[in-house]
Design a binder for these strands. Sequence first.
DNA 1: TCCGTTATGCATCGTGTGATGCAAAACAAC
DNA 2: GTTGTTTTGCATCACACGATGCATAACGGA
Lengths: 193, 193
Amino acid sequence: MARPRNFDEDKVLDAAMQTFWRHCYEATTTRMLEDATGVGIRGLFNAFGSKEHLFQKVLQRYCAMISAQLDEVFAKPGVAAIDMVFAAFAQPEPPEALAHAGCLMVNTIQDLDRADDAIRNEVAAYRALWHGHFAAALAADGIADAEARAEFLVGALWGALNQIKLARDKRAAVPMTDVVRQTVAGWARAEEL
Amino acid sequence: MARPRNFDEDKVLDAAMQTFWRHCYEATTTRMLEDATGVGIRGLFNAFGSKEHLFQKVLQRYCAMISAQLDEVFAKPGVAAIDMVFAAFAQPEPPEALAHAGCLMVNTIQDLDRADDAIRNEVAAYRALWHGHFAAALAADGIADAEARAEFLVGALWGALNQIKLARDKRAAVPMTDVVRQTVAGWARAEEL
DNA sequence: TCCGTTATGCATCGTGTGATGCAAAACAAC
DNA sequence: GTTGTTTTGCATCACACGATGCATAACGGA
């Protein structure tokens, strides 16, 4: 009954996600979004209302994406699944996306003061997602104090993610592998007691 | 021989530090710096050249400040000193400055892509400072693999610092004490082996 | 007291930002 | 083809940012 859109909303969200991921929310300009998505600024605002609302949609999509991956890894809950997660980061050459910009949600924590409630909720839900999987995995193997230990593991993992930016920097040259490997070692040994 | 300044440079740096600390570099505007320091924008630019150079000076001052504190804590190097550091974060009510905005340097990591080399160097030096103290403390107590374990400890501590922003958020409600306490527990137990 | 030099206050610049106004275009329904 | 509705492209808005120009003020040295 009216003129249809000539772009796929999901494709646009994916392209916008890459841009927000690499440059953070504030540093991403509407012109960059135009270039990345191939959609004119008028189309973006018409479809999503505002830059902030677009970002919110991107976060939801990101959360769903990671959630699906976690569902796979934790299909059989247990410590082994947690090890798989950490192992992915302990590789000398971590996945491209991770190595480049860490985690979109973890990056967003930094700007929480300037974010509105919708974004705060999204980040909180994302952390609850991770914590839930970790705690369930620990509990499934009968490990005591599962909730608190899950807090530690999420904290350590997110901390490592945050410092990926340092590892990428030649001058800082933080040996990422060591950080994660020692985290796993510390966690594994803690579990033996 | 010429008109003297009517402000103390160190006082200005302290005031600017508080502002950068709370709002990050990019979100801090020159108008905010005027308000915080009580010095007109012309005075600031005349004294420091640019916003970025002022920030660099602030980082140097911050690094010196923390360095002095670490020298105190690590006056007698050893695991006990490391415990003291972590204990400061495990308090139900951590120090005001920490609870409010974490660590200025850790926050700056997020913006490293947009920072120039001088700032990158400052952050790298700051991490080397922490790592050096931690590694020396571990080595002093004859703990094996001191370098790698120091990486872990710095990573865990900085990760916790980054998530203080989440803990402050009522909706996220991350129990910060648990995160740090479990980190310490993991580390302590790892040390027993 | 005059001079040379630096600092200050105020207005303002150029630029980049997120967001809009508006007319033309593209479709579906009839 | 006509109408009604939505999208698109382009120009542009209002605003905040970092930074600057310039006249004036405040000092030390002679």
